[in-house]
Write a protein that binds this DNA or RNA. Structure first.
Length: 802
DNA sequence: AGCACGCCGACT
DNA sequence: GTCGGCGTGCTC
């Protein structure tokens, strides 16, 4: 059998012998010998004879089949397609798709010997003594070697001494499979009650009978304030049985029951289009904020469950959408499974196992949930489909869940529903029917809010003017008025800040212009690698660099200033100007811990504060009817981000935050402060005209030849050795420039040039649409030119440019 | 990952 | 002259 071994360095398949009496099918999870250890592996295909370059004695036998039946029909094709299109080894994709812990490996462990050592303790070196001390701390006196090495500085030498002296032994622990969690259940046998029961036993039986004849042992003991010996006594007498039963670890539900709501005529029309679909079809549901997209999803899913089909609902970040999750739970109860990477290993494993059962489920999860092994998939929904977090850019494969969803829908022949108030331009573009061919995406729209509530008016405030008028506060007079009004009317509001670490731009407080790259139509990024370094302006795309000018290149004013304003500062300002308005800070600092997000939102919903001050997080999943004011402190941080999607993203974020206002009966109001009131994005947001914005932006993309009119491939290089990355990046770029099929931009250092002690460079390639990036021999052209010390990743259709 | 092999700096 | 550090390469 050919198997993929779960070893970071071994990406291609290895051949193993199937021992007599064992059956192995493709897709089975195996345990195989690999060097000195045992590794998790995945059976790929059966071979009928030995590969040419292997002799029979080279081939070792499969140790065991650890799991089977993990892949629904077509799943294998999906993984294969992801590997091919994203130019990643299949094993890498398998690791992303499967829950961690499914593939296990053996571990080197060290434990204290029982027998007496042959060397006296005081002759041992300090390294050896330290190891002994660590081992003796624990009751089992048994640790993994990796852990011990971390604990003690001279571990290698120390271990040798201890092994020779007979103090410790070293052994390879075979991999243990993650096991379903077991609990003990106690069941009444129905045997006639015996007379020789003790009073305590009688009491226990009584409780058990009253509770329906079956309880978890733990719960029973707690109810009766007794110990397990009593229950064991009952078992001996034949009155109850105690047996281990699998329990599935899953998140607690916060759900209250929820009923389907009456649909608006628009919603009904949309649902009518979705409901009859039973085959592959992509739908774009473009519904303004507050138009009730969620209700449409829920009512589209309900009949599928009746038919025994499952649905997959993908959301950008599960933590940010507790309201949606709660609502799906409330509607479908225990049919709902939540799957995302923040689940514990056990929870993921259990959820995965449950999905393999043939019952229908609604799986709600983040991007990795696109790989949920559902058997009978009837619908895939991507909520907020424009959101960038559907794209993975950290470990390969750098996949986009929307793209993978497309493939999955195709393979399983089910509809794919993309929902957003501000669709990604790609999705919008796909939904437009070109002259040459009809669109493959069906366009559905919800242009009105539910209950005919109006969209909140958006007031744009020119902060240059405020500055000229002598207002140095971060709040314009309009926003101050709005806050005063908010206080007087006892309403609630959101203050939105865009803050993005140190990668910001430089703009002029007098004229509002940002400093642009002379070679590209893009703002330069402000770089200051260390506090004492000279700040520089750099271009991500072409590598151009210059020092920060003393005067504004446009108006010669000296008020050039790197942008960046934090939530903290805004909260302080509110406290200073509006002491009776209470704030809750809502950003990555305050929502770091599990559940903090939900807790803060709950406090705000209860009225513990009038203002929620936060970053990007405010744009998602907040649906609070009492919010009437949204203030955008400075839109500029968003406007001048230095990549081709900056405009699109800014538009989406601004329109999304604006959409948080006026969702209840009270009308909403939005104050958008900016130094660039004339910026096309600001104007488009003000008008709240998605269509026109999309049209114009696409036109720009076409002129500049950017996606969706071309495809991008980003080559990311990093190394602890600054010179080595630079050299490699240059060499690879030169190599690539020899071809006319694509256009090479760069090499250029990454925006954040050094992260975790690694220096980072990148090369951007533009492919015409006729050429598929995965048709290129990257191994030959790129990877083989990359020395060991430099790591290289390919990002196909990148969204983030480091 | 874990292990072996092989090449350069601090000790007998 | 050796021991032991870790860079490099391999595991069916």
């Amino acid at each position: 059998v050919e198997a993929l071994v779960d070893c970071p360095n071994a990406t291609e398949a290895y051949t193993y012998r199937i021992p007599d009496g064992m059956t192995v099918e493709p897709g089975d999870i195996l345990s195989v010998p690999f060097g000195a250890q045992q590794m998790g592996a995945l059976a790929v295909r059966r071979l009928t004879r030995l590969p040419e370059d292997l002799s029979a004695e080279d081939v070792r036998p499969v140790e065991a089949v650890v799991g089977r039946g993990f892949f629904p029909p077509g799943y294998w094709d999906l993984l294969q397609r992801v590997a091919t299109e994203y130019c990643t080894p299949l094993m890498q994709v398998v690791r992303t798709a499967l829950p961690p812990g499914l593939l296990r490996r053996s571990q080197r462990r060290i434990r204290l010997c029982d027998s007496a050592p042959s060397t006296p303790e005081d002759t041992l070196s300090t390294g050896a003594q330290k190891l002994l001390a660590v081992l003796r701390q624990s009751a089992t006196a048994d640790y993994t070697w990796t852990y011990l090495k971390r604990q003690s500085p001279r571990a290698n030498q120390g271990l040798r001494e201890l092994l020779q002296g007979g103090w410790v032994e070293s052994y390879l622990e075979p991999p243990k499979a993650v096991r379903p969690k077991q609990r003990q259940a106690v069941t009444l046998t129905g045997a006639p009650p015996l007379n020789d029961l003790s009073p305590r036993q009688r009491e226990v039986l009584d409780v058990l009978r009253r509770q329906g004849g079956e309880l978890w042992l733990q719960d029973l003991l707690q109810l009766c304030h007794t110990s397990s010996s009593v229950v064991q006594g009952l078992e001996k007498k034949g009155s109850v049985t105690i047996h281990r039963r699998e329990v599935l670890r899953r998140e607690m539900t916060h759900a209250t029951a929820d009923q389907p709501q009456a649909l608006t005529p628009d919603q009904a029309k949309v649902l009518e289009a979705i409901a009859p679909l039973r085959h592959y079809q992509t739908l774009l549901l473009h519904g303004v904020t507050g138009s009730g997209k969620t209700e449409v999803y829920l009512q589209a899913i309900a009949p599928l469950l009746q038919e025994g089909k499952s649905a997959l609902v993908l959301v950008p970040e599960i933590g940010l959408t507790p309201q949606l999750t709660d609502r799906v739970r409330a509607r479908f109860g225990d049919r709902v499974l939540v799957y995302h990477s923040a689940l514990s290993e056990g929870e993921r494993y259990d959820t995965w196992r449950q999905m393999l059962t043939p019952q229908p489920f609604v799986v709600i999860g983040t991007r990795s949930a696109i790989f949920a092994p559902l058997h009978n998939l009837g619908l895939i929904v991507l909520d907020e489909e424009h959101d960038g977090s559907f794209k993975q850019d950290q470990p390969a494969p750098c996949y986009h869940a929307r793209t993978v969803a497309q493939w999955r829908a195709q393979i399983t022949d089910c509809p794919l529903l993309l929902g957003s108030a501000t669709p990604a331009l790609e999705s919008w573009h796909n939904a437009q029917s070109a002259d040459s061919e009809p669109s493959n995406t069906l366009y559905l729209s919800l242009p009105q809010r539910v209950h005919a509530r109006p969209q909140p008016p958006i007031q744009v405030v020119d902060m240059r003017e405020e500055f000229r008028q002598g207002n140095r506060s971060i709040f314009s007079r309009s926003l101050q008025d709005a806050l005063t009004e908010l206080r007087d009317r006892r309403q609630q509001g959101l203050l939105f800040i865009h803050r993005r670490g140190h990668s910001s731009f430089v703009s002029c407080r007098a004229c509002g212009e940002a400093v642009d790259c002379p070679h590209c139509d893009i703002s330069l990024t402000y770089h200051q690698p260390t506090a004492d370094a000279t700040p520089m302006l750099r271009c991500h795309y072409c590598g151009h660099a210059e020092t920060v000018p003393k005067l504004c290149p446009t108006c010669q004013s000296p008020y050039l200033k790197p942008f960046g304003s934090g939530t903290q500062r805004v909260v302080e300002e509110v406290e200073r100007h509006f002491p009776d308005l209470r704030c809750i800070r809502f950003d990555s600092d305050t929502t770091r811990t599990k559940g903090a997000h939900r807790a803060l939102l709950q406090r705000f919903a209860q009225g513990d504060a009038e203002l929620l001050v936060g970053t990007q997080m405010l744009t998602k999943g907040i649906d609070l009817p009492q919010v009437t004011l949204v203030g955008v402190i400075a839109a500029d941080g968003l406007l001048h981000l230095s990549d081709y999607r900056a405009g699109e993203r800014a538009f989406q974020v601004l329109l999304q935050v604006a959409g948080r206002a006026g969702r209840g009966d009270e009308p909403g109001r939005v104050v958008l402060q900016t130094y660039s009131p004339a910026h096309a994005v600001v104007q488009a947001v003000k008008r709240q005209q998605y269509d026109r914005f999309a049209h114009e932006e696409l036109h720009q993309r076409q002129l500049g030849s950017y996606p969706p009119y071309c495809r991008l491939v980003l080559i990311r290089l990093s190394s602890p050795d600054a010179e080595a990355v630079r050299r490699t990046a240059t060499a690879i770029a030169d190599q690539l420039r020899a071809y006319e099929a694509w256009q090479v931009l760069g090499p250029a250092p990454a925006a954040i040039a050094r992260v975790a002690r690694r220096f980072r460079w990148q090369i951007l390639l533009k492919f015409p649409l006729e050429i598929a990036p995965h048709a290129v021999d990257w191994e030959e052209l790129v990877r083989s030119h990359c020395p060991k010390q430099v790591s290289l990743t390919l990002d196909i259709d990148p969204l983030n440019f480091w």
